[in-house]
Design a protein around this nucleic acid. Structure first.
Lengths: 212, 212
DNA sequence: TAGATTGTTAATCGATTAACAATC
DNA sequence: TAGATTGTTAATCGATTAACAATC
């Protein structure tokens, strides 16, 4: 599916392109030039054209880009049409916040189940999905094709839960614990970390910059 | 406080250095070489020495770095000793997850209050902090020195809430809404975005890479 | 056709890696 | 002292920006 290796700098910008294009689309904007898009995103037109040309020529000389077409192309590049299935491990506040308020669908994922150890939660439904006991995880994964797991368990059980997921053949982990997950022999598992503390510390750094 | 302008690539790595150094410290490790740290973090020793030398010489030839000393230096560079004060706007699931499970203290922040519009929550306490009605925000900010606000409100009110914070002189916003916040005339406000969707889409991209 | 804007090649800039003298 | 490892300078690599011919 991929020609050359795309640099991670480009990849990290793709979701942001998608977000802006989606907004433009919902505003009813039909065409956009690299110049105009660059201005609104705070990038250079050159960079946008360079980035997009990694994947093909989506524009037209003298016209620019068709917003809807480009939006769909970017969605496709991001794999948003791959009907990924996702489950969530840990239905505490954070897990619940994601289940109830995050639109997995908008990113092309179908959330099918949540897992927790709390007897009060197990057997209930949250935001439309059933909550199972975490002991049922292996059986569930055997019977359902699941690509990705969201890890919102306590840090103390993060590593073992991740190991269990990997041994069941999970393809990706969206990790919200502040634990660095070892891949061990499962080198092919994709891990995307959301490190809240790293993010806040970056802000902390920015606050003390240029003071004095 | 800063000599030359530090590149954002370096800054983004600092919290990760802190995390690893903190772990080493808690393991009782006293010294570490750039070589050993690089191996465990998946970087090159050169890069670590280069990064750290932006801020000064914290190591010693023939020995390496004293873990505790370096950890404290990095903490200081990150501004973790600046006793920042933080409030949180929006005490829904995500806000509550942060209030109850995220250790602001470990990042050098003191969480002092939460704000929401839900009459059931207003007047109560969550995780040790009082919940006020969001109408009290301006008054609260007048009477208390607050550096940073966490934005966990619904997307529909994100922009106006941010504008209100900025007009009250907030220094930083930790933004969890999927809305791009305009700075308008408050150019000096630091904004750190946590875009869940961008993160998940990056994972989605990685999943479809190298397939075929 | 004339004007606008792409895709791409070349030039520049910045970040990472390599090398090594300094020195603990 | 000999060995280890830093901090820094130089070399390389990669990413961003500039320029422009192609063309809608």
């Amino acid at each position: 599916m991929k020609k050359d290796k795309i640099s991670s700098a480009v990849i990290r910008r793709l979701p942001r392109y998608y977000r802006y294009l989606n907004d433009l689309h919902h505003n009813g904007t039909v065409r956009v030039s690299s110049e105009a898009l660059a201005r609104s995103m705070g990038l250079t037109a050159s960079q946008i054209r360079q980035d997009l040309s990694c994947f093909g020529g989506f524009g037209q000389q003298g016209y620019g880009y068709n917003v809807d077409r480009l939006r769909r192309e970017v969605a496709d590049i991001l794999g948003m049409n791959n009907r990924h299935t996702i489950i969530i491990l840990g239905a505490g506040n954070l897990g619940r916040a994601l289940i109830e308020n995050f639109s997995f669908r908008s990113s092309g994922f179908r959330l099918t189940a949540a897992f927790d150890v709390d007897p009060v939660l197990v057997g209930t439904r949250l935001g439309g999905v059933p909550v199972y006991h975490i002991d049922m995880l292996r059986d569930y994964l055997k019977e359902h094709a699941v690509n990705v797991a969201v890890l919102t368990v306590p840090a103390s059980v993060a590593k073992e839960t991740a190991a269990s997921l990997m041994s069941c053949g999970i393809e990706g982990i969206w990790n919200f614990t502040n634990v660095e997950l070892p891949r061990d022999e499962h080198e092919d598992v994709k891990i995307e970390n959301v490190h809240f503390a790293d993010s806040l510390l970056t802000l902390s750094y920015m606050l003390s910059e240029e003071k004095v």
